[in-house]
């Protein structure tokens, strides 16, 4: 998996490509733990992401909780059909803001 980060003031865009699974989730976890200082607007771009496992969902949930905790916002955009299906059947579509 590849992570591209783009920070503009209080907005951070994180673009993920490849697979977000148990092997790669720790990379995203580092971003959630280390790069959200001063961020009030987090945008996660999944345009080139092909697969999410529960470890991946967990780290996205962690990001959501972190943003909620500091009254910031998080949106997930460019979600492919397969991953949208995963969000929807796991009930995560109701938790995340999906654009």
């Amino acid at each position: 998996m590849e992570i591209k980060k783009n920070r503009e003031g209080a907005k951070l865009t994180v673009a993920l490509s490849g697979r977000l699974d148990t092997l790669t989730a720790p990379q995203m976890e580092e971003v959630v733990k280390g790069d959200l200082d001063g961020v009030t607007e987090l945008s996660i771009d999944l345009k080139d992401l092909t697969y999410v496992s529960s470890a991946g969902l967990r780290v996205l949930l962690m990001a959501q909780k972190t943003m909620n905790g500091k009254k910031g916002t998080m949106e997930i955009c460019n979600v492919c059909e397969d991953i949208k299906e995963v969000f929807s059947i796991t009930g995560f579509a109701d938790i995340f803001t999906i654009k």
Binding site: S54, L61, T90
Partner: peptide, 16 residues
Amino acid sequence: ARRAFILGIPTAIPYD
């Protein structure tokens, strides 16, 4: 399982 997962318990949620 889904409720536990959302509450932060590490588990594999059933997809479908």
